[in-house]
Simulated assay, not measured.
Amino acid sequence: MESVTRGGTRWKRFALVMVPSVAATAAIGVGLAQGALAASFAVSGQEFKVTAGYLDGTGFAQYGGVDMGYKDLKGDEKTAHPVAISTFKNASITKMCQSVVTDVPFVGKITLKLKAGDKGTPVQAKNLYLDVSELDANAKFTNIDIGVAAKDTDNPAGGPGPAGKGPAVKDESILPNGFAQQAERAELTGVKQKAWATTAGTFELSGLSMRLLKGSGDGVECY
C-alpha cells in the first residue's frame, strides 16, 4: 500500500522532516531507555528553519508530543511547545539547509546558516527523533498504518523502532495510547519546515558549510 500527501501540514497531521544539527560533523551521544532514545534537555527559545530537496527514510513512526523549553531568549520562564514527533531508523537526504536568526545587541539580526548534502553525497542519519511545528512537502508513504497506538509503533518491515528494538516512542512523556502512525518507508520532496529540536544517534553531513550572515528573510535564511 502506498499513500501520497501533498501541501501544507500542521501539528497532529503528517509531518516528516530532516533536521541538521549545529554539531553535525560528529556523532551525537544519546541515552537509551527501554529501547528508545530519551530527550532530557529543555529546548531553546528559538525555532529554526530547514529545507531539503529529497528525504528517503525507513522505519518511520509519528505521534504528537510536547517539548518543554524556554519562552524566549531573555529569561528563565518555561513554556510548552506542541510538536509532531517524527522518527526514522535510517534516513538519507539531499540538498539540506538549516537556518536560525538571532537578534544581536548593537549588531542587528544575524542568521546562522548550514548547508550539506548538495555535492553528490547525501546526508546520512540513524535513530532520528524530530520535533516539528510546521511542514510543507510532497510525501509518499509505503505500507503505512494510520491510527496505531504510540506504544505499539514497531513496524517490522522498516525495522523494530528507530532505536533498533522495541517501540519508537521518544520517552515516557508521550501518551502510550495516543494516536500515531507508522510506515515501512517515507519519501519527501520539496521540504520546508520549522522545528524546535532533533535527537539522533549519528549524523553524517557531507560537504558541510556554515556561514554567519547579516540580516534575515528571503535570500538569507533557508526560506
Score class of each variant (00 low, 15 high):
Asp103Lys: 12
Val104Tyr: 04
Val104Phe: 05
Pro105Gln: 13
Pro105Asp: 11
Pro105Arg: 09
Phe106His: 05
Lys109Arg: 14
Ile110Arg: 11
Thr111Pro: 06
Lys115Tyr: 04
Gly117Tyr: 07
Asp118Lys: 04
Thr121Arg: 10
Thr121Phe: 07
Val123Leu: 15
Ala125Asp: 04
Ala125Arg: 02
Ala125Ser: 07
Lys126His: 12
Lys126Tyr: 12
Asn127Lys: 08
Tyr129Ala: 12
Tyr129His: 10
Tyr129Pro: 03
Val132Trp: 09
Ser133Gly: 10
Leu135Ser: 09
Asp136Tyr: 13
Asp136His: 13
Ala137Tyr: 05
Ala137Ile: 08
Asn138His: 11
Ala139Glu: 15
Ala139Met: 15
Ile144Asp: 11
Ile144Lys: 14
Ile146Pro: 06
Val148Cys: 05
Ala149Lys: 14
Ala150Leu: 10
Lys151Leu: 08
Thr153Gly: 00
Thr153Asp: 03
Thr153Ser: 08
Asn155Asp: 15
Gly158Phe: 11
Pro160Ala: 12
Gly161Arg: 04
Ala163Gln: 01
Ala163Trp: 00
Pro167Lys: 05
Pro167Val: 03
Ile174Pro: 08
Pro176Asp: 05
Pro176Leu: 03
Asn177Trp: 06
Phe179Arg: 04
Phe179Asp: 02
Gln181Trp: 07
Gln181Tyr: 05
Gln182Pro: 11
Ala183Val: 05
Arg185Cys: 03
Ala186Pro: 00
Ala186Arg: 00
Glu187Tyr: 01
